[in-house]
Amino acid sequence: MNTEFESQRPAREGAAHRRLQLNWGDRVFRVGTAGLAGLVLLIVGLMAWQMVGASALSMREFGFGFITGREWNPVLEQFGALPFIYGTLVSSFVALCIAVPVSFGIAIFLSELSPAWLRDPLSFLVELLAAVPSVVYGLWGIFALAPLMRETVEPALRTSLGFLPFFQGPNQGFGMLTGALVLSIMIVPTISSVSREVLRAVPQSYREGALALGATHWEAIRTGVMPVARSGLIGAVILGLGRALGETMAVTMLIGNRADISLSLFAPAHTMASVIANEFTEATEDLYLAALAEIGLLLFVVTVLLNIVARTLVWNVGGRREGSRV
């Protein structure tokens, strides 16, 4: 076919030549970008592989008992991750208890109650909460929050709620509660921004239907909007949880860094992320390093799973994808 062109119209020769080149350029483009995209896939695979490899020694040594073992003793080379799992779960749970109502309140305010001029500035400020680096929260926490907790908040909690085991025992300001508190500050932007998107995706007609039946503003939200958005809101909370699990610096600067399991929220504790940050560079023996890497692997697996679940839930509400924001 090309020869036909070439012989018939010399003036068109350039065009045919260019067309060949087009195909070549397009093909290179396609293959090139595909390769780079594949690199992304490769990196994730590599991540999983390296994490497993680094933890292999510890996995072989302790098996399943790693998760249930309470003893973390680098000297005796006894490594059990239970204190850190406990610390992570409790600090995240307490953080969620504080952050979820606040985040939902913000989301409802921004999507339903706020005057138009306030919406943008306010949502920007909430985003800034997420922009402050974790280490700066930790710094502020050490010198401003921890003393406040030690002198004022925790004693007050002890006198008022001290009959509960959570608020008993000595307190120095650095402990589970302080860590959880700063954690909650950091996950509020995540939960509130996703919740807000979810609420916005609910069709207006349900809200109007409730209003037309004589519902007050809040009742219309409660019966017309939130039930429809429920799965997405749960997804938002799970995303917040995922973020809380991985938060490292502020937690390690404020939680006391002691591998203990205690009911008291005042007691120092450790989370999976904080023990890694604290001890990784001091781990000289292979088993020590592998144990820490195994904790990292656990974190990796759990956060990935939570992320997948959360995205599916959020996606289902309005059919909107949460992209790079999260």
Partner: peptide, 10 residues
Amino acid sequence: FQKPNPFPTM
């Protein structure tokens, strides 16, 4: 309303 809007979760 124009478009029927029964509450979907009820």
